[in-house]
């Protein structure tokens, strides 16, 4: 550890004297929008004398589509969510991290060291984890919000003021929780009921938008918004009088992961970047910025103290269980695709 710090410091010093004009290496990141502080990228660039190029995407599906359409070989690392890591590995889009390649692999918290979506962390490291639920404007509605009825069968004062994420996985998983059916149900009656329930619920919705999920809550254009916990915390920090709900029917838990992409043009720098993000101080900077949770041990001293008590990260005792989005087989997925098309036709 000490030696590593020493070498990085040396590299940084060399970088400062020799570099600045032209960086030695390069690192190409494919990342979600608004999800990493620029200072952290600058720090990595300075320490390792690399030029960082970053493109952004707005959904796991968009990431997969871009890589399959030929972007593989362009990027070194990407940050897919849990179920997408599994899909990408299955599609052969990920490179394997050899045992011992990551010096800081031991920093991963034990509960995230061997997740079902990437056994043994062969391709990925934790980035951030959190939940997806919804937030309600407390000026618009004072009643109980601990139920998915707020989204799918809302009280009159919230009807027509709801923004949903424009994301099939998150909307349909939440709907499954609402109805108490499995996410990849193959039961025809359940699927028909799900289809009908969504048709009715749509009449109460104002819009589908993921990119502006936070803004519509801050501006007051929407009184209810399906949203990620960190985005809800940011919206609250920007002045919206909103409360993030943990419905009794359950809510979605997710983990975003930094993966090593197949044919990464700068594989060495990608490994360095992953090691960099396993340093508690660095990943804590992401958490402080994005308001989610890190999956790395020893981050606590570096965290913004308000994070520990922020309501978005602390489910109440009567909250339902958090569940990951499941990956369905092709035949089942096609029915869900049809239900989504019916919803948006």
């Amino acid at each position: 550890m000490k030696k590593l710090l020493h070498t990085t410091a040396l590299a940084a010093a060399l970088g400062l004297t020799a570099g600045a004009v032209m960086a030695e290496g390069k690192l190409v990141i494919y990342h979600w929008f608004e999800y990493i502080p620029q200072e952290l990228l600058d720090k990595f660039a300075a320490e390792n004398d690399v030029e960082i190029v970053m493109d952004t995407y707005d959904s796991n599906e968009a990431l997969l589509a871009a890589l399959k359409a030929g972007a593989i070989g362009t990027y070194d690392v990407a940050v897919p969510g849990d179920y997408m890591v599994k899909i990408m590995a299955g599609e052969g889009l990920l490179d394997t991290i050899a045992e011992g390649e990551l010096a800081n692999k031991g920093n991963i918290q034990p509960e995230w060291a061997d997740p079902s979506f990437d056994p043994g962390r062969a391709h990925s490291i934790p980035y951030q984890w959190g939940s997806t639920s919804f937030a309600v404007n407390r000026d618009a509605y004072k009643g109980d919000i601990g139920t998915t009825d707020i989204l799918f069968n809302p009280p009159a004062e919230l009807s027509g003021k709801i923004n949903m994420l424009d994301s099939q996985g998150e909307v349909l998983a939440m709907a499954a929780l609402h109805m108490g059916i499995p996410q990849c149900s193959q039961d025809r009656e359940q699927l028909k009921a799900l289809n009908a329930m969504l048709q009715d619920a749509k009449a109460h919705w104002a819009s589908f938008n993921s990119d502006t999920a936070k803004e519509v809550l801050v501006s007051g254009d929407a009184a209810v918004g399906q949203i990620y916990d960190g985005f809800a915390a940011k919206a609250r920090a920007e002045g919206a009088n909103i409360e993030y709900a943990f419905p009794k029917q359950g809510y979605i838990v997710w983990m975003d992961n930094v993966v090593l992409l197949k044919d990464a043009p700068n594989r060495d720098n990608a490994i360095k970047f992953m090691d960099f993000l396993l340093e508690p101080e660095n990943i804590a900077a992401v958490t402080n910025y994005a308001r989610y949770n890190a999956g790395v041990s020893g981050v606590e001293p570096y965290l913004d103290p308000t994070l520990a008590t922020q309501p978005e990260s602390n489910p109440p005792a009567d909250a339902g269980a958090g569940v990951f989005i499941e990956v369905c087989d092709q035949a089942t997925q096609e029915v869900y695709d049809q239900i989504w098309t019916n919803l948006k036709k």
Binding site: S59, A65, A69, Q168, G169, S207, W340, K344, K345
Partner: peptide, 21 residues
């Protein structure tokens, strides 16, 4: 509000969205 598909968004969904068709 993207509540209903238009031709453009329908086509976009097939390449960028969940359907992947």
């Amino acid at each position: 509000g993207a509540k209903t598909f238009m031709i453009g968004s329908l086509i976009e969904e097939q390449f960028k969205g969940n359907a992947g068709n």
